[in-house]
Design a protein around this nucleic acid. Structure first.
Lengths: 146, 146
DNA sequence: TGGTAGTAGTTACTTTTGTAACCAACAAGG
DNA sequence: CCTTGTTGGTTACAAAAGTAACTACTACCA
């Protein structure tokens, strides 16, 4: 029990690793597009998985709906995203990337991939597989449309 | 490139896993002691690694000094922590756990260990080793006194 | 129909965090 | 000593996130 250490405590370790690995990338979307992390996530969901509503983004990303609402607003102000009312349920607003948003997404995806590759660079193939698998199990993702 | 997915993007994956794994535990220190995560971290550093100053905690945990300052204040208000002025440098304040804080720490460490064991439960010994090692490398910890 | 319950999304209000300026103490050179 | 620069820590103000209440709509069932 005396050997219990923050360096082995998963919530702490994960948080520190998350902080450390996101610094470089968040700087980029902030500098280039004035976006927050929440905005980047919304942008990514729309860019990668196609048009969807705020609550679908919420289900996939586990972000709180107010965060999403505010991010969508910010992205609309930047003319990155537009919403159209769903015909069969007028509460739902289907969100789409506008050309500007698409360009930002295309730009950032390249950066993200490079960043990810750099982070993985020091790991062996086996380590990568285990790491990703363990993290996905811990994160307990909801199913995505593919 | 089309297969780039948030589920393989390390900063996102780490963040989601960190969120998911910390929910249960944070609820406990919040409910039992009204503490925030920042306060729990300060408490842990003092309880596990012994008396130290705010800036030492900052170096180890990478928390910003204002967060630490505010957490220390909150812990002092709870009579969990007290500070004494260093004799050789009167700017530094050496922080110590008070009996109340020690009890909270002892209580929470047990909970944390159990929580950690639960999180690790579904992983094999090999997976655990790889996971911890990779995370520690990503987190790029500062050296601790031992 | 109409009443009740539930869902999508926004807004108002509060708490927490981030940033920058600040004060007090040390350090080193002239 | 007296400046100039640096460090430990706090405070004030601004930005972001959390919580709860709210509007508008749909769904179901009597």
């Amino acid at each position: 029990m005396r050997d219990f250490d923050l360096r082995n405590f998963l919530p702490y370790l994960l948080n520190q690793a998350a902080e450390e690995t996101s610094i470089g990338f968040s700087q980029i979307y902030k500098d280039r597009y004035g976006m927050l992390r929440t905005e980047w996530r919304v942008l990514f969901h729309l860019g990668r998985y196609g048009d969807m509503t705020a609550s679908e983004i919420g289900r996939l990303s586990k972000m709180h709906k107010t965060k999403i609402s505010r991010s969508v607003r910010a992205l609309e102000d930047k003319r990155f995203v537009a919403g159209r009312e769903s015909t069969d349920d007028r509460r739902r607003e289907i969100l789409t990337l506008l050309p500007q948003g698409r360009r930002a997404f295309d730009d950032l995806v390249v950066v993200a991939e490079k960043h990810n590759a750099d982070l993985m660079a020091s790991f062996s193939t086996g380590e990568r597989a285990v790491l990703i698998d363990c993290l996905q199990r811990l994160a307990a993702f909801e199913g995505l449309p593919d």
